[in-house]
Design a protein around this nucleic acid. Structure first.
Lengths: 98, 98
DNA sequence: CGTGTAAGGAATTCTGACACG
DNA sequence: CGTGTAAGGAATTCTGACACG
């Protein structure tokens, strides 16, 4: 776990860094595209990684993609990553050369 | 400029991450040991680097050093770094081999 | 659908001061 | 000297809703 993944940034700072409104940022969470952590009090905390994701999301929306499409694509990417990982581990386990 | 140096973390999070009180953290600033940025509204924002510094400072205080000593030592280190840099640049400029 | 906004409240942070030692 | 704390106020964030299109 590196700095990039630590959830420590408040929404105001994220808004400032990305140029997006807090409304937009909260909406992406509503659509399950990002998952900030919360303090005891309920304040959202984002990581630098989240911020990069947010920027990508907003660019895709500008290009006409729906949040639903973006979510779908993200899920697909996760599945593909998983497949690749499993494949890699199998190869390692059986010492297969390509 | 990397993530480590971006001033984006509020004092509450710094307190949580370091285990120190907000009072202690603000005091170190008072003694010129750290320099957070401020939002328009005046809220302090720290970097991960600041956090590491803060931890080091608190450890030195625990060992009996005064904030004044710590400040002095820090200044000395900066001067030494500068010297080393200048020396390095001179060597580079004149192509001196050691 | 994605975003703006006004509303009311709660959490967070700020400063200056008093206290102890 | 370094830190705790209560005080009052200001900045920040939260949620749910209405609006537009």
């Amino acid at each position: 776990m590196v700095y990039k993944d630590r959830k420590v940034i408040t929404i105001g700072t994220v808004s400032e860094l990305t140029g997006l409104s807090e409304r937009q940022i909260r909406y992406y969470e509503d659509r399950k595209l990002i998952e900030p952590e919360r303090t005891k009090g309920g304040t959202r905390r984002y990581s630098f990684n989240d911020i990069e994701k947010i920027v990508l999301i907003s660019k895709k929306i500008e290009k006409g993609f729906s949040t639903y499409d973006i979510r779908k694509e993200e899920k697909k990417n996760s599945r593909d990553e998983l497949k690749k990982m499993i494949k890699g581990q199998l190869n390692a386990a059986f010492n297969i050369r390509k």
